[in-house]
Structures are given as structure tokens and as C-alpha cells.
Design a protein around this nucleic acid. Structure first.
Length: 333
RNA sequence: AGGCCCGUAGCUCAACUGGCAGAGCAGCCGACUCCAAAUCGGCAGGUUGGGGGUUCAAAUCCUCCCGGGCCUGCCA
């Protein structure tokens, strides 16, 4: 069997949260960069998702553009992938409405992310509830079959499959059922609370941004939580130390990494030198990204995003034409 | 459309019958530590949702507005 275009399309969406942090980079974006050389990739900065909770319009605008800068700096190449802003392709929201008609209310009620996010919000919008439907539309508008996402999104992709299946059953084969593209599950943990995943929402001590100053990176690594010392009776690393080793693996040479591993195994590792090495290597690893970002001009980023939206829209429009036809709306002849 | 409840520090809440707005957590600085954590010491944090009114004095009482939640009705 030769792979057809229909099973080689990748879609992923990123919320415009402002600057990317290194957890996003090593956990997801680095993988996106790799995927763009192997698949037909659509990457969307999903601003319509961001409005489902309270937000500031100016901040959203700024964050959306900022995300474009960061993604390009990380190595997403407009020649190899389609990078765009969700709201610039209105087919997403149109398809979301259509799909909401084949989405089970009960399924949505079972989405754990809605329950969790809803608890933190004073005002729970209807949009927050139907968020997974828009996500399904994002994916299905391009008939994507592979969706690289984190573990926390797996439930939403399963819902997307159910939505696709139900649509196909009622109106005829239209969408592929997308698969989660699980790469080597790589989770950077918070520096200040290594039991939790690194996230901006936990506070500044918990994450390192891609564009963070060298001084600040060193300070945060230095104050990262460790433990009372290497344990002799068990080889198991504490979460904080394991996290530092993961950072070292991601940024240091094999030699340096092996040296620290060996020190740890022999029970002679001191955390202070480990932290110094992690900070050194991390600063060096992020430097090229910083350099690329500094070279990007705002007008250039805007143009790339607009061009991406044009390309994406051409594809999404075709899908919508087919969908409208199948469900009996639009043209009446 | 009617009724009831709520809004105080970043978060969770306290403040009697109207009497100097406070605590825990989070945050910042320091001590301790190979580095951290924990612990200890210190610091900072406020238009009490907003306007108007009563009063010597309002987070507290009255009034309007904004925001949120619940109940009922109406429509279909």
C-alpha cells in the first residue's frame, strides 16, 4: 500500500499563551519541526480557543503574534509547513457549528478538561463547553489523520474520532478518523514543584521561557527543587533531580551527560555542579533560537501568517464545500 | 418577568449590635543547605466590585449600577 495524502496530513493547534516555554519547545514544538519534513503539516495558533475563558483583547493580539515569532524562531519553516492563525480561516468556526450537530452532549459532559478548567473560572462560558468541537473542526477541516498532542489532549482526539465516525455514518464517508501521534512522551516538570508539569500558569518560578535572559535562566535552575542528596539504598532519582537530568539530556553532549549519570550512580553527585552544567548547556541550546528570533521582523511574521492562512483556507474551503453539500445546506440545487 | 444569595490582598476566607480591614497559603529578602526543599526570622501586599446617600464614624445600613450563582415563571 502506498500512503495516500489522506493519511499523511498532520494538524496541531497551539494556544497563544504568549512566549513559549521550554516545556512546550522540547515537548512539542521540536517535534513539529521534525514532522514538517515528513508530512503535510498544518499548525494553527488557535486564538478562537483562547477566548473561551476570560481574556484581554490587547494581550491576545500580542500573544498571537508573539507565538508566531517563537514558532518560526524554533524552526517551523513556512516552506515546509502551513503556519497560520485560526481566526484567519473562518471555515474552522463554520465547521465547528456543523460538527456540533453530530456531537453528543453526553460526550462533552465527560470531558475532564472542561470540568477542571470550569472550576477555575468564575464565569463558565458555553464556548468552554463546546471547545472540543472546535478542536475537532480544526483537525477535520484538513482531513488530518495524525495529531501530535500531549497526553492531556488524548480524550479530545478520541472525541474527534467519534465525531468523524458519526458524521461519516450519517452523511457518507468524508473524514478520516485521526490518530494521536504519540512521540517519545517527554514531559518537563515544574522547577519549583517537580511533581507537576511545567506550565506558565503555575507562576514564573515554575518555568523557563524560550527567550529568557541568561541571568534569569541561571537563577531559576539554581533555585530548582532537588532533594536531600543521592540515595544510596535506591537508584531512583527524585522528581526534581530527574527533571534536571532530563534537561541535561536535552541540551548537553553525551559525554557530559554520562559523566553526571555516573557520578549519580556512584553516589558522589553534588547538585550544585549539576545545576551549573544544566544552566550552561541550556543557555547554549537556546541561543540559536534567540538569534533567529532577533532577526525576524514583525512585518515578515505577519506576512508568513497571512500567507499560511491563504494556503490553509484553500484546503479548508474544499472540505466545507463537500460538507455543506453532504448535509444539505447552501446551494439548493 | 419575579424572588433569593454572593462580590474583602494573587488565592481561600475572617472582621460581634456600625468603632483603627486581618489570618492562612502564594510572593519577595535573609539564615540554614554542595544547590534546593522543609524549618526559622523578616518584608511587602487593599479604590472592601463601582457611584451616590445616612452617620462623629460604613466592608457592615439605604440606594442605583456592574459582575456572578441559585429558584420560579413566561415563551416555544
Amino acid at each position: 500500500m502506498i500512503s495516500t495524502p489522506s493519511n499523511s496530513v498532520v494538524f496541531s493547534g497551539l494556544q497563544p499563551t504568549g512566549h513559549l516555554q521550554i516545556g512546550n519547545y522540547f515537548g512539542a514544538v521540536q517535534n513539529f519541526v521534525k514532522l514538517q519534513t515528513q508530512y503535510e503539516c498544518y499548525y494553527a495558533i488557535v486564538d478562537y480557543h483562547a477566548i473561551t475563558v476570560e481574556h484581554d483583547p490587547e494581550e491576545l493580539r500580542r500573544n498571537t503574534l508573539e507565538m508566531g515569532f517563537d514558532l518560526l524562531a524554533c524552526g517551523l519553516d513556512p516552506k515546509q509547513c502551513v503556519l497560520f492563525v485560526q481566526s484567519q480561516v473562518p471555515e474552522h468556526t463554520e465547521l465547528a457549528w456543523i460538527l456540533s450537530a453530530v456531537t453528543s452532549y453526553g460526550d462533552l459532559q465527560r470531558m475532564t478538561q472542561f470540568k477542571e478548567k470550569g472550576e477555575t473560572q468564575e464565569f463558565v462560558s458555553c464556548g468552554l463547553f463546546t471547545y472540543p468541537v472546535l478542536q475537532a473542526a480544526d483537525i477535520l477541516a484538513y482531513k488530518a489523520s495524525k495529531v501530535p498532542v500531549g497526553e492531556d489532549q488524548v480524550q479530545h482526539i478520541e472525541l474527534t474520532r467519534r465525531i468523524a465516525r458519526r458524521f461519516n455514518a450519517r452523511f457518507g464517508e468524508t473524514f478520516p478518523e485521526p490518530d494521536v501521534l504519540l512521540t517519545a512522551a517527554l514531559r518537563l516538570m515544574s522547577l519549583a514543584d517537580p511533581e507537576r508539569k511545567m506550565s506558565k500558569s503555575l507562576g514564573p518560578k515554575h518555568y523557563i521561557a524560550l527567550n529568557e535572559s541568561e541571568e534569569s535562566i541561571r537563577e531559576k535552575i539554581k533555585t530548582a527543587v532537588t532533594d536531600v542528596g543521592p540515595r544510596t539504598e535506591t537508584k531512583e532519582k527524585s522528581p526534581g533531580v530527574a527533571n534536571l537530568f532530563l534537561l541535561l539530556k536535552l541540551s548537553a553532549s553525551q559525554e557530559i551527560y554520562d559523566q553526571f549519570e555516573s557520578d549519580y550512580a556512584r553516589g558522589v553527585l553534588k547538585y550544585e555542579p549539576l545545576k551549573r552544567a544544566v544552566a550552561d548547556c541550556l543557555v547554549k541550546t537556546l541561543e540559536p533560537i534567540r538569534a533567529r528570533k532577533a532577526q525576524l521582523k514583525e512585518s515578515e511574521v505577519r506576512e508568513i501568517l497571512h500567507e499560511g492562512a491563504r494556503t490553509a483556507r484553500a484546503v479548508a474551503r474544499q472540505t466545507l464545500a463537500e460538507v455543506r453539500e453532504r448535509i444539505g445546506v447552501g446551494k439548493l440545487i
